[in-house]
């Protein structure tokens, strides 16, 4: 993969938006890519909308602020509405369709609708809807090697929560299988 990925992940605070971005950035780092991770910060982190920009690139990253993403994960409706028109033509869009009832009328992007919260409940992966979406994003963009993604998940799950490592990996694989 030589394509440079400029990713926006957006949703409510608490959905794991920033964590998802961190896993992607770490996977890129483990693969030896240039990476950056830039969160939105401030009052919107408390129950409002949160988003983060992640760049994975073969060359040094200029602006870490992604204005026109070529990959976009929308975890709620306000985020979907806010960023969908900014996605570059040919870009990948992964939508949490349990929470976003709309579909885009754009035909120049590759949109995938994943009912991640519903799937998480069905597979006893409560709280890991974001990681299911991550698995789907990985399938559609190959932002890193699978080995790097596994290592990145292991790195990002804190030592005190190692019991969550297995469900996280299961969530990645579930997303990948869709």
């Amino acid at each position: 993969m030589s394509k440079n990925l400029n990713i926006v992940i957006a949703g409510f605070g608490g959905q794991g938006v920033l964590f998802t971005g961190k896993v992607i950035a770490y996977a890129g780092l483990i693969d030896g890519k240039e990476v950056s991770w830039l969160p939105s910060y401030g009052p919107e982190m408390r129950g409002g909308t949160a988003n983060c920009s992640v760049c994975v690139s073969d060359v040094p990253i200029g602006s870490p602020l992604v204005v026109t993403p070529n990959a976009f994960v929308a975890m709620n409706l306000p985020s979907f509405d806010k960023f969908i028109d900014d996605v570059t033509p040919g870009g990948v869009v992964v939508v949490e369709s349990s929470l976003v009832s709309k579909q885009t009328d754009r035909t120049d992007v590759k949109a995938f609708y994943v009912p991640a919260t519903k799937l998480a409940e069905e597979h006893e992966l409560q709280g890991l809807a974001n990681i299911i979406l991550l698995g789907k994003l990985f399938k559609e963009t190959q932002f890193s090697s699978f080995e790097a993604l596994e290592k990145a998940v292991a790195k990002c799950v804190p030592p005190s929560k190692q019991h969550l490592l297995e469900p996280n990996m299961r969530a990645v694989k579930l997303g990948y299988s869709l």
């Binding site: 780092l29 950056s36 991770w37 830039l38």
Partner: peptide, 10 residues
Amino acid sequence: DGMLGQMMEP
């Protein structure tokens, strides 16, 4: 600045 302070990089 806030961008450099908040962003993560290797």
